[in-house]
């Protein structure tokens, strides 16, 4: 499984006074089993990009290949693309509508024409992937659940379509710290057990640093940078110019390094940072 985006350009309202170039010659690849993080200031084109990956938007020019198959030439059935590429929008809990959790999660598989007999198993499996129990909540109304649970039900609704690529737009937005941690570990679980490509957009640089194998930085409709989190977050000045931060630990370590030149660190996590400090100060005392 792979995704290849070639020279993607998208113009809103072409030829109209409100014409805007939301994507401008964007090219990148995502390899099998990779977790790709996408960052960028609001309005940099991230959401527009995501909507091209499952055919919700048609590019003005350029192509998207999913597993070698071009999905932008209009020959593939849209429902097949959407089964292959699952897209979870920001605040996905607002799209729940069925009477019961089980029915809501079954909405996607049913739309793709899956046989009724297989649907229940799909729903069970999807709910257990997001850490929920079918027997416990399958028959309850999705509107009675807590905020974090609702979000997981919505994600299960996309997972039940067995996508080969899972795209998440700001999966942790608006959650409390505990629910936030749960969603992060849920994403890791999904990745490990399904082995699928995961693409996620986040403003939380800590999440980006801890989850992604590779990071793409969007700025003014273009890809401004890409690389491992280490590489991308070492360009703190360029990121700041695009209105982006580095992970909080990174920013602390940079402030320390500015005052104490002997402590140089590329750490992205607290543990790495602590090790770098201990190493730099011989005889470090607690």
């Amino acid at each position: 499984m792979s995704i290849e985006v070639k020279n993607l350009t998208y113009i809103y309202n072409p030829g109209m006074p409100g014409e805007t170039r939301a994507l401008d010659g964007v090219s990148f690849e995502v390899h099998d089993g990779e977790i790709l993080g996408i960052i960028g200031h609001t309005g940099s084109g991230k959401s527009t990009l995501l909507q091209h990956l499952n055919g919700l938007l048609r590019p003005t020019s350029g192509q998207v290949f999913v597993d070698g198959q071009c999905i932008t030439d209009g020959k593939v059935r849209l429902v097949d693309i959407r089964r292959k590429v699952g897209l979870v929008f920001q605040y996905p809990e607002y799209q729940l509508f069925e009477e019961t959790v089980a029915k809501d999660v079954a909405f996607g598989p049913r739309n793709t024409g899956l046989e009724e007999s297989k649907i229940e198993n799909r729903v069970r499996a999807a709910l257990s992937l997001v850490g929920l129990d079918y027997d416990e909540i399958g028959e309850s109304s999705p509107f009675e659940l807590s905020g974090g649970q609702k979000r997981r039900v919505a994600i299960a609704g996309v997972l039940a379509m067995r996508p080969s690529v899972l795209i998440l737009d700001e999966p942790t937005a608006g959650l409390d710290p505990a629910a936030h941690r749960e969603i992060l570990s849920m994403i890791r679980t999904i990745h490990e057990s399904m082995g699928i490509i995961i693409i996620f957009v986040s403003h939380n640089m800590g999440d980006i640093a801890s989850l992604s194998d590779r990071v793409i930085v969007m700025d003014k409709a273009k890809i401004a940078m890409s690389g491992t989190p280490q590489e991308v977050f070492s360009h703190d000045k360029q990121l700041a110019a695009m209105g982006l931060d580095v992970p909080p630990v990174r920013s602390i370590m940079m402030q320390i390094a500015a005052e104490i030149p002997s402590i140089q660190s590329n750490a992205l996590t607290t543990q790495e940072a602590a090790e770098d400090i201990r190493r730099a100060i011989p005889g470090f005392e607690q």
């Binding site: 909507q51 607002y94 799209q95 793709t112």
Partner: peptide, 13 residues
């Protein structure tokens, strides 16, 4: 617009 897109992403027709 958001809701339509979200349901389309779940294969709604």
């Amino acid at each position: 617009d958001k809701i339509i897109k979200a349901q389309e992403a779940r294969g709604a027709d």
